[in-house]
Amino acid sequence: MAKSIQMKNVDIYYGKFHAVQDVNLSVPPRAVTAFIGPSGCGKSTVLRTMNRMHEVIPGARVEGRVELDGEDIYRPAVDPVEVRRAVGMVFQRPNPFPTMSIRDNVVAGLKLQGVRNKSHLEEVTERSLRGANLWNEVKDRLGRPGGSLSGGQQQRLCIARAIAVQPEILLMDEPCSALDPISTLAIEELMGELKKDYTIVIVTHNMQQAARVSDQTGFFNLKAAGQPGRLIELDNTEKIFSNPTEKATEDYISGRFG
């Protein structure tokens, strides 16, 4: 059920702006892959090409091959909706649907795909909210609007919403940047749970988090401002943090960046 992702010679553009250059990588199934790197080097951009979210932005395009279990997801015949059903995403900034209650936010994916079964929806609501460590805080007010939660709670709501549709791959763009250490720990535990069945790719600025949760780590960097970002190296997390091949990686990890 879990799937793998391969990127081959991928170049990513926003209109004329060449954002990311020549990425080659492989994300193995049932593992957590972490992306680290300085701000603006294209981590989010690479993540968004993995479920065809990049093309939503006008003028944005992708060159090269992005494969889901060996299948190129950018072939013209591929339906992006199906890609996104398989590859879910949690965004850097929480975006709960403002017209929906907490409950409806969690099961929005299922409901809007046509699932009607009440008891099933209820069960999914509880399981997903528990998974995102939000259940205890909201179980008494599931009918309140999703926008009424605090920023961190909203983020966990979005995580619950993403896992409710049971994607095969979960992309998380700095999911813990707005969270307290306890919720962060809960999300990290959740990732540990999820990776038994799912493939996870996470972007994080928290080096300890990358070291704690991921099996492999990729380091992205920019040569200079205005230049495209590149994947400098991707390796086992242990190796990246103890004995990286590239000097740039070592500098970044040890805080001697720039």
Binding site: M53, V81, A86, M89, N95, F97, A108, G109, L112, R161
Partner: peptide, 13 residues
């Protein structure tokens, strides 16, 4: 906001 559209797309809607 586009983030709402993207949030929905990312659920496979």
């Amino acid at each position: 906001p586009d983030s709402l559209r993207e949030g929905s797309y990312a659920l496979g809607i």
